[in-house]
Simulated scan of single mutants.
Amino acid sequence: MTFEIRIICDRSEADRINAAMAAAFLTGPARQYPTRDGMRVRLYFTADHHPDPSEAGSGPTA
């Protein structure tokens, strides 16, 4: 299941948050836009859960 995540943060935190999101979820590159006040940034991630390792190899075989 794919879902969207929006995070509003200080610019200085964007790289750290990007790395944390990539570790927690399967994500594409974050889309980054300034907030209306220009003081922070909005990060938008398209994400999915990491595959469950217990389900690896449980599907049909070729």
Rank of each mutant, 00 (worst) to 15 (best):
M1V: 11
M1T: 07
M1D: 10
T2N: 10
F3Q: 05
F3S: 08
F3T: 09
E4L: 13
E4M: 02
R6G: 01
R6Q: 12
R6C: 03
I7N: 09
I7A: 04
I7Y: 06
I8S: 12
I8E: 08
C9G: 08
D10P: 14
D10R: 06
D10S: 14
D10F: 14
R11I: 11
S12T: 12
E13L: 13
A14F: 01
A14Y: 04
D15M: 07
R16M: 07
R16L: 05
I17D: 01
N18A: 12
N18I: 00
N18D: 12
N18M: 03
A19C: 14
A19E: 15
A20F: 12
M21I: 02
M21Y: 09
M21L: 08
A23N: 13
A24W: 04
A24E: 06
F25L: 01
L26W: 00
L26K: 00
L26Q: 00
T27S: 01
T27L: 07
T27C: 04
G28T: 09
P29S: 04
P29L: 02
A30W: 00
A30P: 00
R31M: 05
R31D: 09
R31I: 09
R31C: 01
R31S: 06
Y33K: 02
Y33C: 06
Y33D: 10
Y33E: 12
P34A: 05
T35R: 10
R36P: 03
D37Y: 13
G38N: 13
M39I: 13
M39S: 13
M39V: 15
M39L: 11
R40S: 10
R40C: 07
V41N: 09
V41A: 09
R42H: 05
R42D: 08
L43H: 14
L43G: 09
Y44K: 11
Y44T: 15
Y44D: 14
F45L: 05
F45S: 03
F45W: 14
A47Q: 01
A47D: 00
A47E: 02
A47G: 02
A47C: 10
A47Y: 01
A47R: 00
D48W: 06
D48L: 12
H50D: 03
H50C: 03
H50F: 14
P51H: 03
D52W: 03
D52H: 02
D52V: 01
P53D: 06
P53V: 10
P53S: 08
S54H: 04
S54N: 02
E55S: 10
G57E: 12
S58W: 06
S58I: 06
S58R: 06
G59Q: 05
G59C: 08
G59H: 10
P60N: 12
P60F: 10
T61P: 02
A62T: 13
